[in-house]
Amino acid sequence: MCPDLVSDTISVLHVSHLSMEGVKTRLPRLEELVLHRVQKSEEFANELMLSCPALRRVELIDCSRSKDLLICGPKLKTFEASAMFEKENLSISISAPNLISFSYISCSTMPYPDEELSALQVHGTRNLRELALDLCMVGMGTIRKAVSQLHLLENLRLKGSPSAERIRITHKNLKHLALTGFKTIALTRFKSLIRVKTQTPNLVSFQYDGPNILVIGPQDSTTLANARLEVDFGVRDKRRSYLKAAKFLRYFGRCDSLTLICKEVKALVLPEEIKSEMLPPLWNVKHLRLHILSNTTGDVDTNSRLTESLRWMSPNLETLVISS
């Protein structure tokens, strides 16, 4: 049990592995609050955010939720919650006019409908620039609604759900989009994802970690400069796999820099009959890095054909790095 916290000088408070139930607080100069595995953390955090006008940063780590979360404060700029345990179908309400970064990631690796947020209210945070949410606990419809209200949003990170099949993102000012969560302890986060639709004309960077080659589009961004893709380019149906890989890569053809991380690379070794049917998909790419997680390229001839294929895909290439 933690003792009462009363001080006119404390500006940073980190609490770990304690119960905060019934703890009295008066911390008028508190600027940073970090709670790690704290019982009744949400009630305690809510109370401090309401009573500490100087609070600028709040972080909850490995805590359980038991009631609705109110994120507020006239000076609050950053709120992060990671490895959160969900207990009920609850809501998050944000009323912090100067909040710049908000992140809420569940500890769950499976989506449970009764644990999804019933509401994510962002009307009180018009200045938010960075948003990170977990598809295991926030439905895509809720995310789209929130994103549409955040006109200054520049950075969006979505942690995957095994059940997510389609993702659609629309935002005219978004610059950075990341779909992450390739590996979990026992599951693949984006194992069902097949299609991503973007209407993000000012997107600068894109990150995707998943097992599937996606159908992605439209190519509405002329500013996309770099991308990082962790995906397996294996061959199942030969012709279809080659064409699907080339079409997927074409979305990133305007990038200056492209990084590919994968176990299987066979679909990147395009045969001549496939090349004859299409234009090089990575026409403007100048810097290409391929990192193979295991030595699957085989003999010298296979390596040579892989290099030749990559150079054909990227005719304006200046730098090519292949490592395993």
Rank of each mutant, 00 (worst) to 15 (best):
H171M: 07
L131Q: 08
I167F: 08
L135W: 00
G139D: 07
L156K: 06
F182T: 08
F190P: 06
V147Q: 06
G181C: 01
A132V: 02
K159F: 14
K183N: 14
L156Q: 10
G181S: 02
C136L: 01
L150Q: 10
R166N: 15
G181A: 09
T170W: 04
I185R: 13
T188L: 14
R168G: 07
R166F: 15
I194R: 10
E154T: 12
L131K: 04
E165P: 08
T188G: 02
G160T: 08
M137V: 13
I143K: 02
T142E: 15
L187D: 15
N173F: 05
S161M: 01
R168W: 02
F182C: 07
A186P: 02
V147D: 14
Q149S: 14
L174G: 09
K183R: 07
L135Y: 01
H151D: 00
T180P: 04
D134K: 00
L177N: 02
R166D: 14
S148C: 10
A132N: 00
I185V: 10
T170F: 09
R168E: 14
F182L: 09
H151Q: 15
C136D: 11
E165V: 13
L133W: 00
S148R: 10
K183G: 00
T188A: 02
N173W: 04
V147F: 00
S192M: 15
C136E: 05
L133I: 05
Q149R: 12
E154S: 15
K191R: 14
F190R: 09
R144T: 11
S192A: 10
H176S: 15
L158A: 00
H171Q: 06
D134H: 10
H151Y: 14
L187K: 02
P162D: 02
T180E: 02
R144L: 12
I185T: 12
G160N: 05
T180L: 10
M137G: 00
H176P: 01
R189E: 15
E154V: 06
P162V: 08
A146F: 08
T184C: 03
I185L: 07
N155R: 00
H151L: 14
M137R: 11
L153W: 09
I143H: 09
L153E: 08
I143M: 13
T184A: 01
L131W: 08
R189Y: 12
M140K: 10
K159W: 11
L133T: 05
T142H: 12
R144E: 15
L131S: 12
P162L: 08
T180W: 11
A186K: 05
T142Y: 13
I143S: 05
R189K: 04
M140D: 11
I143W: 11
L150A: 04
G139E: 09
H176F: 15
L156A: 00
G181P: 03
R168P: 04
T142N: 03
T180Q: 11
N173A: 03
H176I: 11
D134E: 05
